[in-house]
Write a protein that binds this DNA or RNA. Structure first.
Lengths: 302, 302
DNA sequence: GATATTCATCTGAAAATCCGATAAATCGAT
DNA sequence: ATCGATTTATCGGATTTTCAGATGAATATC
């Protein structure tokens, strides 16, 4: 005769309730079946687990000793079953992510592709939108989480740092700056600059301060999308600046990058999640994967 | 359908061997039974645990995740069973015994030492306390059982006779009584008597009745501990009386003993256990050993 | 393409499990 | 003390589960 989970559950139930009858009810079996289960278990172990009369039930010395152990085992088992149901939910799932256009065309496709290898059943839906509306889409629940640069904090939204990367200067091959390993903001001021409209540039100006080199930021041209800026650079209309995570796109345009220094300015990117709202297992899994991916490809795109 | 330990063991066995056939062998069941077990488990969990063709078996994603968890649970369970069998086999255990101070310094150390030879893994914890509180400590569960002289019966406590021994007179070598082989209570009255305080002496007075010889008990001095009494006897301050089980202590003091007769009065000692409460295997074992020891050393200490 | 190996399935037989009823024990109240 | 209520233990029969052996299907190897 082997020990069964039923017997162990019976043991715990009787220990908890201190009564065969109550325990039987809680297990949805008859009292006689329960009586039999305990008897079997005691037989299998070769000793009494309860000191019992028809009126009183009490754990025996040995019973007291093993109760917490058995209880823990059953708890662990239930934990595993929970785990399984989570994993099961993970097998099919839909994750929606909001990200600014540039990120949605550089880092994220790369990560999504890598994730898809291990989790083909999970669909990742990418919402590319204006930087400004990433957080609001997270807030509205339209997406599971969002990725983007720092924005006004909001008590309903949690921002977790995903990475922090420096700015680089971008110019065509054979450009005057191509000879330098690094480019200073002052160097940059010597050339027509193509910048992005919106907060991207405004914040950068703040970071650089009112120092004379901020003149570098006086835009020659200002466009809405990075891809437009890159096309213009490619056409020899000027230089632009971007963050290294866009490296794949820059390479696609066959342009050159140089670290921007004096000072080196970095930009943090965050994952935005909504408070008081747990992620679906699939979303959780992809979010973890994203962090791991970024950590393992530190300085990716360089 | 509920999950069973059999299924979990089957899962582990298949994971380990990577083969249904081998796993079935190692579990001493047929391959078809094993196939069924895995099928059931997968059904219960609602997903595949193995990716299998007829030629190759491989843990699925989920299977890989839960394998270590399940393995740990089974290990824990086996650990508990081990624990139980150790307790049962007396390879470990703790026995707590309450006994009056005198007994805790004479008979019990002797028995415990003898028991320890055969059962070195079992710890015997001796609680020496006032005679009056032996039973209450048994009742409270503070000790597994108690040893002591007769006390008020209690429906919750079972008293089993351990031994019945006579009183002896104790005096220094060269004492006036040394020439006699036996000492009567009347003889005793001729010498200053040192007695123990408390019920010990009171009960003795009852046993002796109102006969004139009870004058023997009029105490010259009354002390709390036998060892004090013996020291005083040793110093020539008088004689005392005790029960033969204390012989080892008397000999330690190099005093002499003589049977007290006319009448011979005996005192019974009991083992007190609590009703409706089984002893742990270790306590059971030591209790049995104690009875055997006393029986085999009948009149021990003489 | 033949062969050997492996997992899945089917079937009858054996074992277990469960339930309901009943017995036995105990406690509390009259 | 006795009776009634409550609780655990046990018994017999019906049901369900489990298992072994044989067979079938799939696939890798030669």
């Amino acid at each position: 005769m082997n020990i069964t989970l039923k017997q162990l559950r019976a043991f715990i139930a009787v220990s908890r309730t201190g009564s065969f009858t109550l325990a039987a009810e809680s297990l949805f079996i008859t009292q006689s079946a329960l009586s039999g289960l305990i008897k079997e278990l005691e037989q299998a172990l070769g000793l009494r687990l309860f000191d019992r009369s028809t009126r009183r039930i009490q754990l025996s010395e040995v019973g007291r000793n093993i109760y917490p152990l058995i209880d823990k085992i059953l708890d662990d088992l239930d934990g595993v079953l929970d785990e399984v149901s989570k994993l099961k939910a993970l097998r099919k799932g839909l994750v929606r992510i909001a990200a600014p256009q540039l990120m949605a065309s550089t880092l994220l496709p790369e990560v999504i592709a890598a994730y898809g290898v291990a989790h083909p059943e999970i669909e990742i839906r990418l919402v590319d939108c204006a930087v400004e509306s990433v957080v609001s889409r997270v807030f509205s629940g339209e997406v599971d989480f969002g990725v983007g640069p720092e924005r006004d904090s909001n008590s309903e939204i949690t921002a977790t740092t995903l990475f922090e990367l420096p700015f680089v200067a971008v110019f065509p091959p054979g450009h005057a700056l191509a000879g330098q390993h690094e480019v200073s903001w002052a160097d940059l001021a010597e050339h027509p600059l193509i910048t992005l409209q919106g907060q991207f540039t405004e914040r950068l100006a703040v970071d650089l301060g009112s120092a004379p080199r901020s003149r570098a930021l006086e835009p020659h041209t200002s466009v809405a999308f990075m891809s437009t800026a890159l096309s213009m650079v490619n056409a020899g209309l000027g230089v632009t600046i971007c963050i290294t995570y866009a490296a794949s796109l820059v390479r696609l345009y066959r342009l050159e990058m140089r670290p921007l220094v004096d000072p080196q300015v970095t930009r943090r990117f965050y994952v935005f999640t909504r408070n008081n709202r747990s992620l679906s297992p699939a979303a959780q899994s992809f979010r973890d994967f994203l962090f791991r991916y970024v950590a393992e490809h530190a300085g990716f795109g360089e």
